[in-house]
Amino acid sequence: MAYTLSFILGMLAIAVTYYSWQRSTPSLGWAALAVFITSVISFSIAAGWEYGVVYGLLLPGVLVWVAIAREQTIRPLKLTQAPVRTISTSGYKMAGHLAHALVVLVGQLLLSTVISVALSRFLPIEQTGQLAVCIIIQPLLWAMLAYHYLGSPAKRKAVMYHSVAAALFGITLVL
């Protein structure tokens, strides 16, 4: 019963979001958010908060397709043939891609690990808690560093900033 109610609330949250979107009424958007939070709480009551939060967060990703299917538009097929663009496979270009890969997958792994370990150690909690926090923030920090590096036109400068930040945080680890 509690599961059914939670599921209905989840569907209602999507329905209200869709209704608010269709009519461009932000106030209804807030109502949708409230229903969504209620559904997460309801799932938490039904299944315990650990499962409930996961259900509440993941279900909209599936339920929303009912609204998307309603909203889909189908146009007649219009095939166009653009001239095929040559993809550069020059050695210089390839070396550039490999360098990016090394920076993102190796360099930023190390930098983000140092920064997140240092950051988590500032928290006034037990070491196990610090490690748990570190495990959560490390991939997010790594993602942000990768985003900054790849999105920035001044890539060397980005690497320099990251290295300086890691060095500063690294000092706190050995002091």
């Binding site: 869709y18 979107w21 998307i68 889909q72 538009t73 146009r75 097929l77």
Partner: peptide, 9 residues
């Protein structure tokens, strides 16, 4: 947020 255009190009 809910758009899905199909067909066309």
């Amino acid at each position: 947020a809910f758009k899905l255009r199909r067909g066309g190009t």
